[in-house]
Nucleic acid binder design. Structure first.
Length: 401
RNA sequence: GGUGAGUUACUCAAGUGGCCAAAGAGGGCAGACUGUAAAUCUGCUGGUUUUACCUUCGAAAGUUCGAAUCUUUCACUCACCA
């Protein structure tokens, strides 16, 4: 296999759909024969302060392109964030204020260079050219799209049918994202499969505005969240943040289902397809315990976002807590007054939000003091130190003084 | 602008004067079983030292012994017409 074919294989790995693949091949050929680079665009709305593993699927693919001559156009959608991408949303998104957007954007910059090559990355803010577009520009931009076509979009049509409001501003979102491609003269745009409509608008607009090229589109599957049901997102609290502390990151990854683990391997591991298939086979034949496979994956990810060896440390901590049922090493300590009612103390320690909830948990044998289940919900704490375990995951050390 | 329909807990959704802290489903939490996996079974899922009381059904005011339920005003959403 020659270099070009090899590069193409790497690029295609794990991706869901490619539109205009021959064009990508031409760009690669041109790179290898003439040393000419090309532009790969991906946009991120700075709507949350940090990125999670779901975003990493795309960023990883951008890094792959950088290895084969791609110059990354990393768009921080500061302007479009103020509209709110309607993709996958069932209702109009809240509009963020400027300060939050800028703050988030700064954190983004810090995080992506854990992965991307600085010399081959242009970070750009789309407010730069979208402000210049002006009202007349916007109107002529909007004349390139019909309401009927907009309503072809699955999420719009669903909302329309179910009588959920759609703001006109949301219709402008795909247009503005598409205009980014016009302004930047992108060759390839990356996005999730849910972005298909927006990505295709980019192609259409490049043609209308005579950019002289129509971008190829490469779509990656959407990473499922830890629950394995909905896509990974901060608001659903089923995400692994890139900045998560090592032990937490490890524990979160261990909680995914076995089926989902293969999906994660496929989209996030540096292991190649053959290795992954071999593991899958071994698990099936019971040569490899699925828990071991999951640990290896969790270790790989923790090592990548922290430093080498942190994954192994996290694994040891994890097993000591959950296998040997020991307490975590960095357990939170809270001081409590003598004679405090146990339920009140748990609320003070912020393990639960109400004493009613704690009462219920006590009735369900979920509260353990020094590893012994408490059955007296009226208990008042006397002086001393108590290790409290609430359910499987919540711990606190109470110092009663 | 006109006409009609609607707004119930985290989400969907029942309830149309008292038996309503409000059915059911999903989600979540907990217990059992496990590999803190999945699946399954069981229980819980407004608050308060809790056989009781307090605050909730878009907002406010009213009718009533008693209101999620009836009346009025307001806000918001949707459909049709313009």
């Amino acid at each position: 296999m020659n270099k070009i074919q090899n590069a193409l294989e790497e690029i295609k790995r794990g991706c869901a759909e490619i539109i205009d693949e021959p064009r990508i091949e031409k760009l690669l050929t041109n790179y290898y024969e003439n040393g000419e680079n090309y532009f790969v665009k991906a946009g991120f709305d700075p709507t949350a302060p940090d990125l999670h593993l779901g975003h990493y699927v795309l960023i990883h693919k951008l890094a792959t392109f950088q290895r084969f001559g791609g110059i990354v156009q990393f768009i921080i959608g500061d302007f479009t964030a103020s509209i709110g991408d309607p993709t996958g949303k069932s209702e109009t998104r809240k509009i963020l204020n400027k300060e939050d957007i800028l703050k988030n954007a700064t954190t983004y910059k810090e995080q992506i260079f854990k992965i991307l090559d600085k010399d081959k990355t242009n970070i750009v803010f789309n407010s730069k050219w979208l402000y210049e577009l002006g009202i007349d520009g916007l109107i002529s931009l909007a004349s390139n799209m019909t309401v009927a076509r907009m309503l072809e979009r699955d999420d719009f049509s669903k909302r329309y049918k179910s009588n959920t409001p759609i703001a006109i501003s949301e219709f402008t979102y795909p247009l503005l994202q598409g205009y980014d491609s016009v302004y930047l003269k992108s060759d390839i745009e990356l996005g999730g499969t849910d972005q298909k409509f927006n990505l295709l608008v980019g192609r259409t607009l490049q043609k209308v505005y005579n950019v002289g090229k129509e971008q190829s589109v490469l779509m990656m599957p959407i990473l499922d969240g830890l629950d394995g049901v909905q896509k990974m997102s901060k608001s659903l609290n089923n995400y692994v943040g890139l900045q998560d502390e090592a032990n937490e990151m490890f524990a979160k990854l261990m909680s995914i289902s076995d089926d989902l683990m293969w999906e994660y391997y496929n989209l996030l591991s540096i292991k190649n397809a053959n290795e992954i298939n071999q593991m899958k086979e071994d698990v099936k034949n019971e040569k490899l315990h699925p828990k071991k496979a999951k640990e290896d994956f969790a270790k790989e990810i923790v090592d990548r976002f922290h430093s080498d060896g942190d994954g192994e440390k996290a694994r040891e901590e994890f097993n000591s807590i959950f296998q040997k049922k020991e307490l975590p090493s960095d357990i939170k300590e809270v001081e409590i007054e003598d004679g405090t009612w146990i339920a009140k103390a748990i609320v003070i320690a912020k393990l639960e939000s109400s004493t009613s909830a704690v009462r219920r948990l006590i009735k369900q044998n979920a509260l353990k003091i020094d590893d012994i289940a408490l059955n007296d919900e009226n208990l008042k704490l006397k002086q001393g130190i108590y290790n409290i375990k609430l359910g499987k995951k919540r711990f606190v050390k109470l110092k009663v003084i």
